[in-house]
């Protein structure tokens, strides 16, 4: 591998890992708080991309505004999912997971009917040009994803450790019964968790919209990788999700560059299977008594 290719691949890995991380922490948050395994998380990502398509390409809003708008809009979708699916199936991980698998079908069809099935929506890149390092070109559009992701992870960390409801959220993740005894409303907490998960997935989709072809099915491939990430990291651990995002981001990008995307997914799947067999609780997961 040449130096320029190596730098290029590392840069791409970092970008990819950042996207994975913003998606995976939401997934881990939902699972950690109330065992909400959201299969429609990839569709939230897809909806985020469509928000940018709608507001930026069709309405002509400035790109940063369109990305910001994805946060509350998809957060709302997340809250609706909590209210309509996770709350009634509370306590049954599989039922919630399967029901959200049904939700992916619904969202894909609705978006497909509204904006066309299989039509690739090309979104014009708002930040043209690239940063040249040692013969490698890294597009600004990709590069901005890294600081945004860092900002989002830091914000979530601050929220979980320094804001009252965030602390309650952590308490609930450790022991819902104790949290309930302390007078914390579990419903409010799960709602908050799903709002954050949704909003973050929305922003991830919005950031990737100008880079990836926008289709109703774009969430499908990424959700598989996201689930691999949270399993590898330890289902309920946010730090584990971030760590695993980088491991998978690098493996995936390097494997794709060296071989092809099929080998890349196979490597990820194999890693996950290995973790499940050797350390079922994940890299940073806690062993349940």
């Amino acid at each position: 591998m040449e130096v320029s290719t190596l730098i290029q691949t590392i840069a791409n890995s970092l970008v990819q890992s950042s996207v994975y991380a913003t998606l995976a922490i939401g997934l881990a948050l939902g699972f950690g708080v109330m065992k909400m395994a959201n299969f429609a998380h990839g569709e939230f990502y897809m909806l985020g991309a469509y928000v940018v398509f709608f507001l930026y390409t069709t309405w002509g809003l400035p790109y940063p505004l369109a990305v910001l708008a994805a946060l509350p809009i998809i957060a709302l979708v997340g809250m609706l999912t909590e209210r309509l699916i996770f709350r009634p199936t509370k306590g049954n991980v599989l039922a919630g997971f399967m029901a959200t698998a049904g939700l992916t079908f619904i969202l894909q069809v609705l978006v497909g009917q509204a904006w066309g099935v299989g039509l690739m929506r090309a979104i014009e890149t708002p930040y043209k040009g690239a940063w040249e390092v040692a013969g490698a070109f890294i597009g600004w559009q990709r590069l901005i994803i890294i600081p945004v992701a860092i900002l989002m992870i830091t914000a979530l960390w601050y929220f979980l450790y320094h804001v009252k409801i965030g602390k309650a959220l952590r308490a609930c993740a450790q022991d819902p019964e104790v949290a309930a005894l302390q007078g914390i409303s579990i419903n409010k907490i799960t709602l908050t968790a799903m709002a954050i998960a949704g909003g973050y997935a929305g922003i991830a989709g919005a950031l990737m919209a100008p880079i990836q072809p926008v289709t109703p099915y774009m969430g499908h491939d990424i959700i598989i990788i996201c689930f691999i990430i949270v399993i590898v990291g330890g289902m309920e651990s946010i730090a584990g999700a971030v760590l695993a995002s980088f491991i998978l981001g690098f493996i995936h990008t390097f494997m794709t560059t060296l071989y092809d995307s099929i080998v890349a997914i196979m490597a990820g799947v194999a890693l996950m299977a290995l973790i499940l067999i050797v350390k079922p609780e994940g890299l940073l997961g806690k062993v349940k008594a």
């Binding site: 699916i85 919630g96 049904g102 992916t104 079908f105 894909q108």
Partner: peptide, 17 residues
Amino acid sequence: EWRPLIAGCILILFLVV
């Protein structure tokens, strides 16, 4: 083309209700 939507609704209906 609406078939997945119907299927999804039925799945959610049965799991939730």
